[in-house]
């Protein structure tokens, strides 16, 4: 496969990935609808099939941002900066979605919109950390400076996340203990597990689709700027011309 010489000129969404994603989303929705209601939570448990995958996609996004940030600092490839930024944007979206869905799920289950649980607090903090990351990017007009500073913050922020999570975990916990990622048999009905895994797959594909599309938009913009630069641009000093001396008298 040869690389696209004009990264911005390809189809924005592509064909295969949207088709596969759509199929996965339909399958995940069908599985979520067909899975049995929970003994305690009843129909409300179906929120789990979107809440948990959204949280998974959020964490995946931040991991991708971290990897791309480290990659940019080593290789200085603009594509890695675009990937870091795109994944952070998508991550903020999925984090917001996970928090909103969790809140909707928590209201009838726990009786409150918001609970001071470790995982919830860490996720909310992550949301703000990456809002800060995006704000930092917006504040820097120079592309190289932006890539460098945001890559550094991408690494610093993510390195602090385990400490944040650990401290909040110590501080308080009332979230249910892990039910799926247990070394022995998961404490979840197998039909529900399949629906959940399909949800995770669908959200992972959605993440890939969103990130790829966002990267392509950014690449197209960069290509436009590069085109602009290859055309002869006047140097900064060319903007200054001789004053019209005597015309004001």
């Amino acid at each position: 496969m040869t690389p696209d010489p004009h990264p911005g000129s390809g189809p924005l969404f592509g064909r295969r990935l949207p088709a596969v994603t759509a199929a996965a989303v339909v399958a995940a929705l069908a599985a979520a609808m067909m899975s049995p209601p929970d003994y305690v939570q009843g129909e409300l448990v179906r929120l789990m099939y979107v809440h948990v995958p959204a949280a998974w996609a959020a964490y995946l996004s931040y991991a991708v941002t971290l990897a791309a940030s480290v990659g940019w600092l080593r290789r200085r490839r603009p594509g890695l900066d675009r990937l870091a930024a795109a994944s952070a944007e998508v991550g903020v979206f999925f984090t917001g979605l996970a928090i909103a869905l969790g809140s909707i799920w928590g209201r009838p289950t726990w009786g409150v919109w918001w609970a001071w649980d470790a995982r919830l607090v860490t996720t909310a903090l992550l949301f703000f950390v990456y809002l800060g990351y995006l704000a930092l990017r917006r504040a820097i007009p120079d592309p190289v400076l932006r890539a460098r500073r945001s890559a550094v913050f991408g690494v610093v922020a993510f390195a602090q996340v385990p400490l944040v999570h650990f401290s909040v975990l110590w501080w308080r916990t009332l979230h249910q203990p892990p039910t799926v990622l247990r070394p022995s048999d998961p404490a979840i009905d197998h039909t529900m597990l399949i629906a959940l895994l399909l949800g995770v797959l669908a959200f992972t594909l959605l993440h890939a689709l969103f990130v790829r599309t966002r990267c392509r938009i950014a690449a197209a913009r960069d290509a436009l700027d590069a085109d602009d630069e290859t055309r002869y641009r006047p140097v900064a000093g060319a903007a200054v011309s001789a004053p019209e001396v005597g015309s004001h008298v």
């Binding site: 007009p141 120079d142 592309p143 700027d225 602009d228 630069e229 641009r233 006047p234 140097v235 900064a236 000093g237």
Partner: peptide, 9 residues
């Protein structure tokens, strides 16, 4: 180049 503005060339 500063930002996208060439200064020296």
């Amino acid at each position: 180049t500063v930002g996208r503005t060439p200064i020296l060339r």
